[in-house]
Simulated scan of single mutants.
Amino acid sequence: MAEPEASASVLELSAGVVEYEDTGGAGPVLVLLHGVAMDGTLWRHVVADLRNGHRCIVPTLPLGGHRRPMKPDADLSVLGVARLVAEFLEALDLTDVTLVMSDWGGAQALVADGRDERIGRLVITSCEAFDNFPPGLPGKNLYASARMPGGLRAAFALLRLKPMRRLPMTWGLMTRRPVPHEVMDGWFRPLWTSKEIRRDLRKYVLGVPPRAELLGWADALRTFDRPALVAWAAQDRVMPPEHGRRLAELLPRGELVEIEDSYTLIPEDQPERLAGHLREFLRKE
């Protein structure tokens, strides 16, 4: 059976145009979400593994790796992006979706905001959780840059230099193995070339609510009564493994797997293992 090819598409949403890829097919629908300063190519290996027998939809969220700037008045806070994901599912009329996320912690906001009715299953891989916003040393460095005039431009200009990408304060703690430079070039190019894209990212980075609200979002996962899988990197140094265990305990039907030999971006470090866990999770009733 031939594998369906992913098709590049665009969707006009309230905040602006969102690009996405869709493998098509009649199998279970997975919507896979990436984190800050990257795009849907984060999931390229996982999609290649799952696309035969599953419909994989991969939007590029307005988190810095997007190529089309959002409207100037768009709400790109954590909650604003979570609402945009809900709008994306509605616009495509997707139901009983398996929502999968990496690095970005918007699932908590989505559930707390009562916009999870189209989600049949939830998969949370190593990501922002509880009050770990912005997460770890890379997140704090990004937040400091966003607060300074011209800071994001300067910070990402440094990432044109390939050795800078493996520093602990940039991407060195995100993956155990270097992400191919051509992939990272694609992630960073919009931030190198567009002040509007940098504006969008700044909105997100500075749009983190107070600690009490963040903790309330996490606690709201107690209300998610559908199957949930928490897949966490056992050696994560940005998103504490303890957070994965706590999230799995909060979710009424949550289960936990810890994936060895990986940092935060499991789709880069261990795509085959992650795809295997996803396949097994989807087979369960």
Score class of each variant (00 low, 15 high):
residue 2 A to N: 06
residue 3 E to M: 12
residue 4 P to E: 04
residue 5 E to S: 14
residue 9 S to G: 02
residue 10 V to Q: 15
residue 12 E to P: 04
residue 14 S to P: 05
residue 16 G to E: 03
residue 17 V to M: 06
residue 18 V to H: 08
residue 20 Y to T: 11
residue 21 E to S: 15
residue 25 G to F: 03
residue 26 A to D: 15
residue 29 V to F: 06
residue 29 V to G: 06
residue 31 V to E: 13
residue 31 V to P: 12
residue 31 V to G: 14
residue 32 L to Q: 10
residue 32 L to W: 06
residue 35 G to I: 08
residue 36 V to I: 15
residue 39 D to V: 06
residue 40 G to I: 00
residue 40 G to K: 05
residue 44 R to H: 11
residue 50 L to T: 04
residue 55 R to D: 03
residue 55 R to T: 01
residue 55 R to A: 03
residue 63 L to N: 01
residue 63 L to F: 01
residue 64 G to Q: 08
residue 66 H to P: 00
residue 67 R to D: 09
residue 68 R to T: 15
residue 76 L to S: 07
residue 76 L to R: 07
residue 76 L to G: 03
residue 78 V to T: 07
residue 80 G to Q: 04
residue 82 A to N: 04
residue 83 R to D: 09
residue 89 L to T: 04
residue 91 A to Q: 11
residue 95 T to A: 08
residue 103 D to L: 05
residue 105 G to V: 05
residue 108 Q to C: 00
residue 114 G to F: 10
residue 114 G to L: 11
residue 118 R to T: 07
residue 121 R to T: 07
residue 123 V to P: 09
residue 124 I to R: 12
residue 128 E to S: 15
residue 128 E to Q: 14
residue 129 A to M: 14
residue 132 N to H: 12
residue 134 P to F: 02
residue 138 P to G: 08
residue 138 P to M: 08
residue 141 N to S: 15
residue 141 N to R: 13
residue 143 Y to E: 07
residue 143 Y to V: 00
residue 144 A to T: 09
residue 148 M to P: 04
residue 149 P to I: 04
residue 151 G to K: 09
residue 155 A to W: 06
residue 155 A to N: 12
residue 164 M to C: 13
residue 165 R to D: 06
residue 165 R to C: 05
residue 166 R to S: 15
residue 168 P to T: 11
residue 168 P to K: 09
residue 170 T to V: 03
residue 171 W to V: 11
residue 174 M to E: 00
residue 179 V to D: 10
residue 181 H to S: 14
residue 182 E to N: 06
residue 186 G to C: 01
residue 187 W to F: 15
residue 191 L to Q: 08
residue 192 W to T: 02
residue 193 T to Q: 12
residue 195 K to S: 14
residue 197 I to S: 05
residue 203 K to F: 08
residue 205 V to E: 09
residue 209 P to C: 04
residue 209 P to W: 09
residue 215 L to E: 12
residue 222 R to L: 00
residue 226 R to Q: 12
residue 226 R to V: 04
residue 230 V to Q: 01
residue 233 A to M: 02
residue 235 Q to N: 13
residue 235 Q to K: 12
residue 241 P to Q: 09
residue 244 G to Y: 10
residue 250 L to C: 08
residue 252 P to N: 03
residue 253 R to N: 14
residue 254 G to P: 01
residue 259 I to R: 01
residue 259 I to E: 00
residue 260 E to R: 14
residue 264 T to R: 04
residue 264 T to A: 13
residue 270 Q to P: 05
residue 281 F to R: 03
residue 281 F to M: 05
residue 281 F to H: 10
residue 284 K to F: 09
